[in-house]
Write a protein that binds this DNA or RNA. Structure first.
Lengths: 210, 210
DNA sequence: GGAAGGATGTGTACGCTGTCCACAATGACA
DNA sequence: TGTCATTGTGGACAGCGTACACATCCTTCC
């Protein structure tokens, strides 16, 4: 991550990416507020102002880091989906898949609270929910991962069309809320077991309520 | 809010409260990040260091402002409950009351996004969910308002005991998530009508899923 | 192949922030 | 009335984000 001492040329090579990665490291430990531009340049072995060749200001760096963190979240979600064994029944599988998406999202929140906050706490428009820089290594953004799971739910005949529309909202809100409350909010002190329980109950509620 | 010019005595009178109120004003316009200690002292007509007689550091001021903002949220929630007309049927009323709590919460989020973020984004323990400084003018904290509505749901026979426990979690998560996504998240651009629709659908899901 | 010009990095500087320290004014109480 | 804890002041410091002018490099085109 740091290539401060070993830089032969005047040019860095890929400073933009280096700054984002430094930002990710800082966010990992303290959320978006811990992302400090000067420190990022320090870690990249570059003068503070060099950052301004790649980002208009700190806010833009923040957004780039947030986008990267969203990609990592997408990975966690897809991992959870892949780990979900199939039952042979398409309807059941589709429902399990939606659950796995939620579980993956929350697992990411708990495993990487700082990155989670960086990903989903920094202002973000729905219009950009498909931007490539928010995608994980499989090429999908968190929103896409959820949307496709819901599409599958619809395709399997579980979710009628009129309730498919806007279903992202309901599912995402619930799960996101639990994540936030468990991180910053009143649920901080909860044990892992309690959080697991809350997660399953919440997913059940969403499954029934969609 | 500002009593900068008119202070006759060396003593301020109630500097602590003045700083909190200045903090609330700043938070109203930019969320918790916009709360700056020096600016608060400036508005209170006092030197920067005076703040340290009342708060150990900026973080403590932040927490005090957050607590006050939670009180305002509690007010909004109770207002919504009071505005809810009764139907005569206790079971229906209890369910409507829970819905009103959620609607009040979200109305507050949309009316005062900065204060909402200050209230529920600043780290906060469940163990302190009943602290008096988080209460609104009716003396209840947001958590209490929700808990009592759920108690009423149980008392009305709608919510069996085994599902009453931890129900705060489910209800709060869903509603909180929608609030956050609508403020900072991908749902920022949604029109009022769309948000209203999402709110009602979400509340329906919670009502069915609790 | 050499000059031109855009892209990228550096140096210096400014105002602002949170916070530390020593000191001053005040009010309460012996 | 004198003592002392409480509350406010003044000055200082390092760190931050950022602006401006300048340096270095890479590419491109004659």
């Amino acid at each position: 991550m740091t290539d401060a001492p070993n830089r032969s040329s005047y040019r860095h090579g890929d400073l933009r990416q280096a700054l984002i990665e430094a930002g990710l490291d800082m966010a990992r430990q303290g959320g978006p507020d811990a992302i400090v531009l000067r420190e990022a340049t320090r870690r990249a072995g570059v003068s503070p102002n060099a950052a301004y060749r790649h980002f208009a200001d700190r806010q833009e760096l923040l957004e780039a880091v947030s986008a990267s963190a969203q990609g990592l979240a997408a990975d966690a979600m897809e991992d959870a989906v892949e780990a979900q064994p199939g039952t042979g029944d398409p309807a059941v599988d589709a429902r399990l898949r939606v659950g796995a998406v939620g579980r993956g999202y929350l697992a990411f929140a708990r495993r990487e609270p700082g990155l989670f906050r960086a990903a989903f706490t920094v202002p973000n428009d729905l219009s950009e929910a498909f931007d490539a820089d928010k995608a994980g290594y499989r090429g999908r953004t968190p929103f896409q991962v959820l949307a496709e799971a819901l599409d599958a739910l619809h395709a399997a005949g579980v979710l009628p069309a009129e309730r498919r529309q806007g279903a992202e909202l309901l599912a995402w809100s619930s799960v996101h809320g639990l994540g936030m409350l468990a991180l910053d909010g009143p649920l901080r002190g909860l044990t892992d077991e309690m959080l697991d329980g809350a997660t399953e109950r919440l997913l059940l509620m969403v499954d029934r309520g969609l």
